[in-house]
Computed example of a mutant assay.
Amino acid sequence: MSERDDEEREFDLRWADGAEHKEPSARARMLAARWKENPPGPVPFRPDPEHRRSRHRHRSPWMSAALVLGIVAAVILLLGYLEFRAPF
């Protein structure tokens, strides 16, 4: 690409960015048409805490950390045991 093409391309990008009216994307147009006939209902930002608990088991962050550390310790012990038993 020549230097002249780069300058023209940069000019075109600046011209396009400075446009007063920007056409919405196809998805935005599709959703606007769909919502015009059937608007979506309100959606809460976060679900109710009771609803979340009923779907997932409640586990303390300490339990998760202890589980991870226990697995790491078990792997270290297993590798040490295998190294100890390996013939020289």
Rank of each mutant, 00 (worst) to 15 (best):
P44A: 15
A74W: 03
A65I: 06
A74G: 07
R52L: 14
D48N: 11
V75Q: 01
S25I: 01
E37H: 07
F45Y: 11
E10L: 14
G18K: 03
D17F: 08
S25M: 02
G70C: 04
L13W: 11
V68H: 01
V43W: 01
M1E: 10
V68R: 09
P87L: 03
H21S: 06
D5H: 14
P24W: 07
D48F: 06
S60W: 03
V68L: 13
L79A: 14
L82M: 11
F45Q: 14
E20K: 11
E20F: 02
H58F: 05
G70Q: 06
F45K: 07
W15E: 09
E7N: 11
R9Q: 03
R27C: 03
L69R: 04
R14H: 11
G70T: 02
M30G: 00
K22A: 09
S2D: 15
E83Y: 10
F84C: 00
S64F: 06
P87R: 08
E7R: 15
F88P: 04
L79V: 09
S64A: 05
R55S: 08
E83D: 09
E7K: 15
F11Q: 12
A28W: 06
H21N: 11
S60N: 12
V68P: 00
A65G: 02
M30R: 15
R34M: 14
D5E: 15
A65V: 14
A33Q: 11
W35I: 00
R55Y: 13
R14V: 06
Y81E: 05
R14T: 02
V72M: 07
L79M: 13
I76T: 10
W62Q: 14
P49Y: 01
E3G: 08
M30P: 00
Y81G: 10
M1R: 09
A73M: 06
P44C: 09
S2L: 05
I76K: 06
V43Y: 03
A33P: 00
M63W: 14
M63Y: 13
W62E: 13
A65N: 01
R9M: 12
R34Q: 14
F88I: 05
W15H: 09
P40K: 06
A65K: 12
K22T: 07
H51T: 12
F11P: 00
R9L: 14
H51I: 11
P87E: 09
A74V: 05
I71K: 06
V75I: 15
P40I: 04
D17P: 00
A19C: 09
A74D: 04
P87V: 04
S60V: 01
P40N: 10
K22D: 04
L77F: 14
E20N: 01
N38M: 06
S2P: 03
D17V: 00
R4M: 12
R29M: 14
P24S: 03
R29A: 08
V75S: 07
R85V: 15
L69H: 01
R34I: 13
V43I: 15
F84Q: 07
L31G: 02
P40V: 05
A33T: 10
E7G: 02
R4T: 14
E7L: 15
A86P: 00
